[in-house]
Each structure stands twice: as structure tokens, then as C-alpha cells.
Simulated scan of single mutants.
Amino acid sequence: MKKNICGLLLLLCFSTVFAQNTVTEVTYKTVLNFANLSEKMTDKYSKSEINTIVNSRSGYDAFNYTLLFNNYESLFWLNPIEVGMESEGGNNNLVTLYNREKDSKFYKNLKDKIWLENFMSSGDGLLLLTLKEEKVEWDITTETKKIGKQTCYKANLNTGKKVYGYSDMSPDISVWFTPEIAVPFGPKSFGNLPGLILEASIGPRTYYATSIKYNVDKTINKLTEGKPITREAYRASRAKF
């Protein structure tokens, strides 16, 4: 459906207003729903392969993520958890999934136009990716639902271009954002919408907000650890293998 600009502007008039340095904390959880696989994925994988993927990712429901933001800056990361050791009878799937994500962090600064991502690369160690802010084409619909106390609008990502590291061959991506909290942030590096993203689905995986705390006594720190590299340079280096 076409963008309902008038409706969104009216909602923005009643949006939560944030002081420049006021920090809000959002907690997200994640879940896999393979019942809603897109045709792109069902064409690519057999039923047995999908079952293998489901079983290998059974630990995602144990994860909690944190998003800190003020009116121009945000930081998103996976909260530490105790996963045990595989040799001591720990959940092998959980250990693998956690080790894969535990070093990933996403930082945005809209005022200074800085977009950074920590990423653990096999053979390269911890990288500090410098990313270019992308012009994202969202299809904002008039479909709404309540998430907590907030009225949210659904938006679908136009993946005809390479955005957020995804291309037209990537899984379907859709989000639910609320103009009642008028900041352009969300899980991972998603954003560029007239409201906070409270739910984001990337193929079968969904991030969903479970709590929002306003005026928290926490600081948003710019990412500095890791070997600096651009996303383009990293892709070029991996293409050689």
C-alpha cells in the first residue's frame, strides 16, 4: 500500500520528545518462525535442510539484545549470557550461535554521519567496519498493530538495491515502527524510518522489543575496538578466496 504520509505526520505531532542527551534503553528478544519462510528460501532449501537449520538455531530464544539511543545516536549489541562449555555438556547449538554473535555491535551517529559495526571475521579477528549511511527505500503501509502501548506501522524493505548488507536475493525484510517514539533507530543497523522499530523480521528471524526504559543512567560509547576496514574493502578481500 502507498505511504500514508498525512496519518504519520499527525501521529508525529504526539510523538515522544527526547532531550539531546537523554538515553532510552530498549530490550529485544529474537525468535525463528520457519512457518513464514519466503519462496526464496523454500526454493533454495529442502524440508530436511530446513529442519537442520531450525535445530542448529534452537538457542536463539535465549538471547537478549540492548538498544541505547538518544535523539541522534544509537548502540545495539547482544547481552552476555552463560553458555557453558561444549566439553562439559553445554548446549552445542547455543555455544555456536552465541560465539558467532557475541562480538557484533552496531553504532550510529546521525549528527556526525558515523556508522560503525563490530564484526568477528574468521582469519581476520575483530573488525571495525566503517559503513556508508544508505538511502533506504521503505514501503510504509497503513497496516497497524499495537506493540505494548505503542501503535506501530508496518514497513517493507525494498531489497532491489544493496542496503544494510542485503540485496534482492536476501530474505524478505519487514518491520513495525512507532511514530509515537520519533527516532530513526532499531535492531542491528535498521532505521531510517519516522519512528523507533519495535519489531524487525529478516526472513524467518524476528527481533521484538520486550521493554522500554526512559531516562536511563547509561552512556552511548562510540565503537573503537577492532581493525578498521570499510565494508567494500572487506567484501573485496573475501572475494579472493
Rank of each mutant, 00 (worst) to 15 (best):
Ser38Val: 02
Asn92Pro: 03
Phe34Tyr: 12
Pro80Asp: 07
Val83Cys: 00
Thr96His: 09
Gly90Ser: 03
Leu68His: 11
Asn99Phe: 03
Glu82Tyr: 14
Asn93Glu: 13
Phe76Gln: 04
Lys102Thr: 10
Arg100Cys: 07
Asn109Gln: 02
Asn93Gln: 14
Ser74Gln: 01
Leu67Thr: 00
Glu86Met: 12
Tyr98His: 15
Lys108Gln: 12
Glu86Arg: 10
Leu32Tyr: 15
Thr30Arg: 05
Leu78Tyr: 08
Asp61Leu: 01
Tyr28Leu: 04
Phe119Ser: 10
Arg57Lys: 11
Lys44Trp: 07
Ser38Met: 00
Gly90Tyr: 02
Leu75Phe: 05
Val54Arg: 13
Gly90Leu: 01
Ala19Met: 03
Leu68Lys: 08
Glu73Ser: 13
Thr52Asn: 13
Asn92Trp: 03
Lys102Met: 13
Ala19Tyr: 11
Asn33Arg: 06
Leu116Ile: 09
Asn118Arg: 08
Gln20Ala: 14
Glu82Asn: 12
Ile53Asn: 07
Trp115Ser: 11
Leu78Ala: 08
Tyr45Asn: 02
Asn118Gly: 07
Ser121Lys: 09
Asn71Gln: 14
Asn21Ser: 15
Arg57Glu: 14
Lys44Thr: 10
Tyr72Arg: 11
Leu110Ser: 04
Asn71Val: 10
Glu101Ile: 09
Phe34Arg: 01
Tyr45Pro: 00
Val95Ile: 15
Trp77Asp: 02
